[in-house]
Simulated assay, not measured.
Amino acid sequence: MNNRNRGKNTGDDVLFGTEKQLEKLRAAVSDMHYLLSRGYPEKTSSELVGNRYRLKSRQIQALRGASASELQLKERQTKQVAVQDLENKAVFLDGFNVLILLESLLSEAYIFEGLDGCFRDLSGVHGTYKRVNQTLKSVELIASFYKKSGISKLVWVFDQPVSNSGRMKQMVADFASEQHLDWEAELQFNPDQFIAEHAEIAVSSDAWILDHCKSWFNLVRYLIHEEELSVNSVRIIHDEPF
């Protein structure tokens, strides 16, 4: 067993652990939402807001993840489905996106609740994925969801160019075989587009997928409540998510 996890970075408590910083981030998300809703590009908006509030790079990363335009929020709300809508349906899961978020959550890293009700983390693949102590537990949580929801099939989609994606595909296949689960695993060069085009129901917190898929399910929010997970979540929004 390795000793890796996806816990907090040094300095995260300073950036996200005080009410002063959270109030600054909430104001930044409100401003970012205003700009996005009026057609400003995300990069320009985050630069303007980041400069105004003197945000550090990880705070800007959290800001981008939490923000969306009014049109994006309305369209995502329209396409979101509840757990009771999943029975006998095939669900496509954004493999690294969901795994890394769950690994971060289980490592007690900060995760951030966005305007759309999705949680997002500050970790990333950066061309290489490495298993951590929380990887198996994350897969087990997804298996619990699979069994409780009554979905007909779960399709994991991994980024083929990412190092170790083939190993993760095999791990998922082996786990499914041992547990007698109807799972499939795909390697795709453009997993976001593949999920958007092929999934009847997508599971991801990736903004592009949420904006282009047919429908989506908020798996991590479901797991937090259903499994009563302890979460180091940061709410940097003023209004209730939809």
Rank of each mutant, 00 (worst) to 15 (best):
N3T: 09
N3D: 11
D13T: 07
D13R: 03
L15E: 09
E19L: 11
E19F: 09
A27Q: 14
L35I: 04
L36W: 05
P41R: 12
T44H: 10
N51D: 10
R52Y: 10
Y53D: 06
R54A: 07
K56E: 15
A62W: 12
L63T: 03
G65K: 00
A66R: 02
Q72T: 06
R76L: 04
L86A: 05
K89F: 04
Y110M: 03
I111N: 00
F112M: 05
F112N: 04
C118L: 14
F119N: 02
S123C: 12
G124A: 15
N133G: 14
V139H: 10
F145T: 01
S152T: 11
P161G: 11
K169T: 02
M171G: 08
F175R: 08
E186K: 11
I195E: 02
A199Q: 02
A199T: 03
S204Q: 01
I209W: 09
L210G: 07
C213M: 07
S215M: 03
W216D: 00
F217P: 00
F217D: 05
F217M: 03
N218C: 04
N218Q: 02
I224M: 12
E226V: 01
E227W: 12
L229T: 01
V231P: 06
N232M: 05
S233G: 09
I237Y: 08
H238F: 13
